[in-house]
Amino acid sequence: MVVPRYERRETVAFVEVKSPPPPANALSGAVADVTALARGLGVTLGYMFQKPVTIQYPEERPRISARHRGRHELERHDNGLEKCVGCELCALACPSKAIFVEGAENPPDAPVSIGERYAKTYIVNMIRCIFCGFCVEACPTEALQLKKVFELADYTRESMIYSKETLLAPAPKREATDSWMPG
């Protein structure tokens, strides 16, 4: 079965605007004009007594949608091992070449990830990143996630290049083994 890639929709280019009928005489026209002006004044006055829609940002936090694409994070398994296996598929998928991954063999006595290989170097250039989320889609182990953190501004270009230490999710606490730990 051939699934069309894009569904073609009928779009209405022009909407017929029905202009009001011409006034019967000059007086009724003037009355209609003044009524229209008064109605406009009523609209603005009505808005004045409504609650402003502004979000007072630094004090009041904006509501971030569940699928917001913000800051990158490299996830871990519950046992603390990294999910990333250093396959470099995210780097390949990235349209703006913002990701650099260098994989290496897992040391057998102290494995970093669950696979044979792990990411020795993992760098995301946040200046280049366009937050398209292709890297997340490409990741076979669901190691890379885009989180809800959106306050990414900083003062230098160097600080915008995130190393693996910055990106890696914090290691889960060992003692609380019973409870489910988010993220």
Binding site: T44, Y47, M48, K51, P52, V53, T54, Q56
Partner: peptide, 9 residues
């Protein structure tokens, strides 16, 4: 006042 009439502060 302009702000409030435009639903902002």
């Amino acid at each position: 006042v302009l702000g409030r009439m435009q639903a902002r502060f």
